[in-house]
């Protein structure tokens, strides 16, 4: 029974918090720009408006790609522990992670592929070169940030000797947080966080001014609404993963969300002030500093084991 509640609850939390974060992002950026900014529920209005618009379709794959992306993101949420602990503590509840015994972090990494791949398929089916250029950039950017990200994940996995996310979180709660035990990895992960989220300075995939919002060039109406939701849930997944890997998760949902908010604010500050980089520079950056830091940390971790 608790299993079913969890299966319903965790995507729902991701949906609500993710959409809220999207609105918050617009508000924060507006305030940094000394604007008033839209109301915080603006993304909800946008999504409702898009759902009501009758847009076009370029074939079944054009729509199924979006469905695949959103479904993949929803399933990913179920594999990520959203706070909770097995140990006895005040205000703690049991771990909120419905699919905790289905393969752990390795499955999370592969499920996170469904989002980009679904969008790439849909964008490819839209028969628009802007979309293809956008997808090409997305793939290259993914390769660029995955190199340091894999080093980071492997360092964490070897540090805690487990491939299970719930176990990694539990170890952190017993001993010290990841940010203290694998500090360089945490820095590297934070540096590539904007690239994983696709926000400035790495928003070159959906660059509206250059390639007409890239993969989304042909999307409108319901499909675009679902893509917005997917973006929100992806945002949630990536930041939740960061909190689980480095900030010790949370003893309950509330502390977990507070930690997520802190990470999110830090990332949005970067988003608010930096301009966009070229894809070549993005690859060079990702393969230089974050990779070097993550590599050093992994070597230290492996040698100290």
């Amino acid at each position: 029974m608790t299993g079913i509640i969890q299966i319903v609850l965790s995507p729902l939390i991701a949906f609500v918090v993710g959409v809220l974060f999207l609105g918050l992002a617009r508000k924060i950026i507006a305030r940094v720009h000394r604007r008033y900014g839209p109301p915080i529920y603006q993304p909800v209005i946008d999504v409702v408006r898009m759902m009501s618009q009758r847009s076009i379709s370029h074939g079944a794959l054009f729509e199924l790609g979006v469905v695949l992306a959103l479904a993949g993101s929803l399933v990913t949420v179920m594999l990520i522990p959203l706070g909770g602990t097995e140990a006895f503590q005040p205000f703690a509840h049991s771990v909120l992670c419905p699919l905790s015994s289905s393969g752990g972090l390795l499955v999370v990494m592969y499920l996170m592929l469904f989002g980009p791949l679904g969008l790439a398929l849909g964008a490819g089916a839209s028969a628009n070169p802007n979309a293809s250029i956008g997808v090409s950039r997305k793939m290259l950017l993914a390769l660029a940030y995955e190199v340091p990200f894999l080093l980071v994940i492997l360092a964490v996995m070897s540090q805690y000797g487990s491939i299970s996310l719930t176990e990694i979180v539990a170890r952190q709660q017993q001993a010290s947080w990841g940010v203290l035990s694998v500090p360089l990895s945490a820095v590297a992960a934070f540096l590539i966080l904007p690239a994983m989220l696709g926000i400035r300075p790495f928003d070159l995939v959906t660059a509206p001014q250059e390639i007409a919002s890239g993969p989304l060039a042909e999307y409108g109406g319901t499909c675009l609404a679902l893509i917005t939701v997917q973006k929100a849930i992806h945002l949630f997944v990536v930041i939740a993963l960061f909190v689980d890997l480095f900030l010790g998760g949370g003893v309950n949902l509330a502390t977990f969300l507070v930690k997520m908010l802190a990470v999110f604010l830090a990332v949005e500050m970067i988003n608010a002030v930096l301009p966009r980089v070229k894809i070549e520079d993005a690859i060079k950056f990702c393969w230089k500093w974050p990779t070097a830091l993550a590599f050093v940390q992994m070597t230290i971790t492996v040698l100290s084991k």
Binding site: R26, A30, R35, Y36, G37, P38, P39, Q42, I45, D46, P208, Q209, A212, S213, L216, A217, E218, G220
Partner: peptide
């Protein structure tokens, strides 16, 4: 943007 008006590319 405070009225919800933002430019879009396509």
């Amino acid at each position: 943007e405070r009225f919800g008006i933002i430019p879009v590319a396509t």
